Simulated assay, not measured.
Amino acid sequence: MRKARPWVAILAVAVTWWLTLAPTQMGGPITLAVVSGTSMQPALEDGDLVVAVRQNDYQIGDTVIYDKLGGIVIHEIYAVVGDAAAPTDANPSPVFKTRGINNQHFDSWRVHASEIRGKLAFVLGGGGRPIIEFTSSPLLAGVTATALAAFVLLPRARPRINPRLRELLRHSATERRRIKQALAIEFTWLLVLTLATFLASALLLVRHMPLWPQLALSLTALLVSVLLLSAFWVYYASGRNLAEPQRSMAVLGPRLHRIDSSLKVDALPTQSADELSRIRDRTGLPVLHQIADRSLDERTGMITATHRFFVMTEKQTYVWSVKVLQLKEHHE
C-alpha cells in the first residue's frame, strides 16, 4: 500500500479548518467578538467573548452579530419585515429589525440577512477583557513578547548524565560548527517572527479589522514567514542539502563531542540521523562523534572512514553510522 503524501494530510486539515473554524473575514463560518457596552445585559456583559456561527436562515429571538455603522453589532432579532436587496447583495434577502434587550427603544436601522455574520453559539464570560488589555497596553504586549522569546531561547534543564558518559565527555574534544550555530540563531529568530505574525493576525481577526489593508498585510506577513521558516528548515537547518557526513553533523549539531577512534562502544543502531536526533531531543543528552575504520587507497587517493554518532542514556546507547568516501586532502 502506498503511503499518503504529507501534503494530502495538510490539505485535508486546512480544508476542515476552513469549513468549521475559519473566521468570516476569510470566508469561513465563525465570528469572534468582544462585547462592548450594556445593551445586551443581563445576557451579555461588557468584556464577554462571544462566538457566532453563520446560519442558512435566522429566526425571531436569535442573537446575531452583524455589520452596521462601520463596525459590528450584537443584538437580538425581534421582527422580520420582508425581503429586499442590500447595497452589497444583488439578490433579495430577508430583512430584520433588531434591538438590544436592555435598550428601551428598538434599533432605527434594518438588517439584511447578507449583513449577518452569524448566530450566537457560545459565550465566555469576561473572556474578552484579556484581549482588550493586551491590545491597548504596550507594556503587556512587550512582556508577552519577552516571555515568548525567553521560552524559545533560554536553555532547558540539564539532563542526568551517567558516569561512563561523563568520563567520555571529560576526554572528548568539542566540535563547534560556527555555520551551524549561526543557522540555529537565524532559525530561532525566524520562529519568533512567525509566532509574532501569527499572534498579530489572530488579534486583528478578533478585533474585526477589515480584510484590506491591515488584515491582508498581516496574513501576507504570516504566510511569508511560514514559507521562509519551512524553506530554511528543509534546505539548511535539517542538512538535507548537504552530503554525508556533513548532513548527519548538521542534523545532530550544533555541538558534537569527538571521542577516540579506538574506543569500542556497544550500541543499538538507529535507522537515520533524524531518529538519533529525536532521541537526543527527548533526553537532552550530548552527541558523541567517532571517526573510525579509516583506510587509504593509495592508487586513487581516496579515504574511507566510518562516522559513528552516539547518544548514551542510562539504560541504552544508540548509534547512527555512516560510511563516507573522501579525497585525502578534504578529509579532516
Score class of each variant (00 low, 15 high):
M1V: 12
W7I: 01
V8N: 00
I10T: 09
I10H: 00
V15W: 00
A22E: 00
P23S: 02
P23G: 02
I30K: 05
T38D: 12
S39D: 06
P42G: 05
A52Q: 06
N56C: 03
L69H: 11
G71N: 12
V73T: 13
H75S: 06
I77T: 04
V80H: 02
V80L: 06
D83T: 14
A85P: 03
P87R: 02
A90E: 12
N91C: 00
P92K: 03
P94I: 06
G100T: 05
F106G: 15
F106S: 09
D107E: 09
A121K: 07
L124W: 09
L124K: 07
G125I: 01
R129K: 12
S137N: 15
P138W: 00
G142A: 13
A145W: 03
A145R: 04
A149L: 14
L153S: 08
L154A: 14
N162H: 04
P163L: 04
R166L: 12
A182Y: 13
A184W: 10
I185V: 15
F187C: 11
L193P: 08
S201A: 15
L203K: 07
L205I: 15
W212F: 10
T220A: 14
A221W: 07
R240K: 10
A243K: 12
E244Q: 13
V265Y: 03
L268H: 13
P269M: 00
D274V: 08
V287E: 06
A292H: 11
R294S: 10
L296M: 07
G301T: 06
R308V: 07
M312N: 13
V322K: 01
H331I: 08
